[in-house]
Design a protein around this nucleic acid. Structure first.
Lengths: 253, 253
DNA sequence: CGAAGCATTGACTGGGGTCAACTTATGTGG
DNA sequence: CCACATAAGTTGACCCCAGTCAATGCTTCG
């Protein structure tokens, strides 16, 4: 894996994630590498996709963060989910699809066209797995918003992020870099900026998490997960490589 | 469409819904009718599917209501979404899938095996459309929980139900029958039973909705939708029959 | 330097939760 | 037909988590 900014390295993270979802065959890996050579840059804050508009070709995120967003009539904003490196944008199965939410870039975003899977391709399986994880994250978001208090929402969200970034190989230790503002966290968790700030303060005091803008550190993810009753996300049976191998990240205490 | 309880009539509602999602060809309609002849009955309150367990063959709901449920560590329960006649259960694309949530029957439930689509079948498209609607309903659930107050949550939920039941031909006028208790509504909307009761009282007083257990009547769905800024769910471009034809249900004022 | 965005804090308020009682169905068996 | 049990709906009194408003730091950047 070479360094620098040559295209091959650009999609290393995305391939890393997809290959953890299923065993990628030769042809798939080659298709991904080839697709990564034609990447597109989207500046931060730009919209990649507008709710209600036609969905274009599915894109694969090579680097950067994005968010699925919905504007609420009364002026508010709800973030439906986050999109991280290795995630797919606009991958659906129905014909003539319409975007169910807008997608905005939270950072400068590098994307490429997601190569179309051939018949019986392992890529098709990787996409399906990715799609299933997307649904799992939506369900997690629902339980967070519906049945958790402020501090549990934040803890659960941070653990999910750690899990997902670990899947893409982006969370060494219990720390990760992120482009989130407290306002974004508020729009994600259904809270206000003020209350997010207060809750973060409490979590810092209690030694659970340390938010210093741009970076987040969880002192003891396993203990935190246990306390709020969180279990790692699973979408397929633990056969060969069909599960995300992130559990070990949370095992030690 | 004959009356009575012969198998052909049993799946009439499900076929009605799927054929509104896309234009069903002859073979698909025949496959659905045939599948409906071998139906299974699940008593109310029974679990069809357990979170974390392997998912079996995809099922099609012929009649009755079910709910996707997740138990929250601190004793609570969150309903992730409702499953209505014509909806699919356990339809996913990844191999060896694991259920992302439990599914429980809210009423006695009649289901049949969802016939496997052939290559380039219109059934495949119908399933994909149904899947897309499922995602849309999850997103709607997120914005409800994240950014709406109690009365808007109830109004939005009721409008969604009206829209979905109309799609299956089960909501003549602005009234529909349902098996929901106020506790179920509470578990769905992230509120408490007590507060759901109070909010329903207010809505009745204001002439927005009338909850009399077992039946719900919205006096003016279009006005209500306008007030809370709700638009009908759309997942594909309005080409031929690719959109749900429920808009007319909400048009008049 | 000022401007703009983000983080932080305090004082006050209110929507919805909690607790607890009571009523109204809907059975169910004697 | 009534006695009893159970589930669902209804209401009141009280409280608290999180929202609102508003001011003040703290960066970063032109």
């Amino acid at each position: 894996m070479s360094a620098g900014r040559i295209p091959h390295a650009a999609n290393a993270v995305a391939v890393h994630r997809l290959s953890k979802l299923t065993l990628l065959d030769e042809a798939s890996a080659r298709a991904l590498n080839k697709a990564g050579q034609r990447c597109r840059i989207t500046p931060g804050q730009h919209e990649l996709c507008a709710e209600g508009k036609a969905v274009g070709e599915p894109q694969l995120i090579l680097s950067g963060w994005a968010a699925r967003v919905r504007i609420v009539p009364n002026g508010g904003r709800q973030i439906l989910g986050l999109l991280l490196p290795g995630d797919l944008i606009g991958h659906c199965y129905q014909p003539q699809p319409v975007a169910l939410s807008s997608v905005i870039a939270l950072t400068e975003l590098m994307t490429c066209k997601a190569p179309a899977p051939e018949q019986e391709d392992s890529l098709r399986c990787a996409y399906a797995m990715s799609h299933a994880f997307d649904e799992a994250y939506l369900l997690a978001q629902i339980t967070r918003l519906g049945r958790m208090n402020a501090s549990d929402r934040l803890a659960d969200l941070f653990l999910e992020l750690l899990e997902r970034l670990a899947l893409a190989g982006l969370a060494p230790g219990y720390t990760f870099h992120h482009p989130l503002t407290q306002e974004l966290v508020a729009d994600m968790t259904g809270l206000t900026t003020v209350h997010v700030n207060r809750t973060l303060k409490t979590m810092r005091r209690d030694g659970d998490a340390n938010w210093s803008s741009g970076q987040l550190t969880l002192s003891n993810p396993a203990a935190l997960a246990h306390r709020i009753g969180r279990t790692p996300t699973r979408v397929a049976q633990p056969r060969s490589r069909f599960i995300a191998q992130t559990t070990h990240q949370l095992d030690p205490n």
